[in-house]
Design a protein around this nucleic acid. Structure first.
Length: 183
DNA sequence: AGACTGATATTCT
DNA sequence: GAATATCAGTCTA
């Protein structure tokens, strides 16, 4: 993962990360669904400026932004973009490595349910707030650019009440591993 | 299948 | 006090 790849407009990075390989301690898979956020976006955590929670999003490109969702789940973003305060939320993976570890962490057998949704993805990969701000090209993270291209669909983001009409969600067309099928 | 609910950290009002 | 970039469970049909 080269810094130049991430230092582009968030929507381009969100699209470009589709098909990439994310691993945490060797456990992970192919990125099949992402969403873009930036400072101009009312749905973004950075819309109202820096806070202790969103500090990583104002830091260097290529770091992780991990936050707690609804007080319960963890969600993982890749800090990227041209302007500070931008990131791409990783919403779903196609599991490829360490599937048995993921099953044990998640307590489910169906591979489609291991990493389908940002909260599930973090549980399967063992991601917690301890990894907030960590460089994603350094252990325990590994992030590789896509080797091949995929047919990508674009649509509205999921689970928000602001910026609903913004079409900044990207997913592999037809994948059984995306969190909701706009396929 | 779809509607509702509970869990509860962080931020905003 | 209320809302939220969620998920699992339960109830209703």
């Amino acid at each position: 993962m080269e810094p130049a790849f991430l230092s582009r407009p968030v929507t381009e990075v969100a699209r470009g990360l589709i098909g990439g390989i994310l691993l945490v301690d060797g456990v992970g898979g192919r990125i099949v669904e992402t969403e873009a956020y930036d400072r101009t976006d009312p749905a973004s955590h950075t819309f109202r400026g820096p806070t202790p929670r969103n500090a990583a999003m104002f830091g260097p490109v290529g770091r992780a932004y991990v936050y707690r969702s609804y007080g319960i789940h963890w969600c993982l973003n890749v800090v990227c973009g041209v302007e500070p305060g931008s990131a791409v939320l990783l919403r779903a993976l196609e599991p490829l490595a360490g599937i048995e570890v993921m099953r044990a962490r998640r307590g489910v057998a169906d591979p489609r349910l291991l990493c389908r949704g940002p909260g599930r993805l973090c549980q399967a990969l063992g991601i917690t707030g301890a990894l907030d701000g960590r460089a994603m090209d350094q252990p325990p993270f590994s992030l590789e650019q896509p080797g091949t291209t995929f047919e990508i669909i674009t649509g509205r983001r999921i689970g928000l009440t602001k910026g609903v009409a913004t079409e900044w969600r990207f997913a592999v067309s037809g994948s059984a591993y995306v969190s909701r099928g706009a396929n």
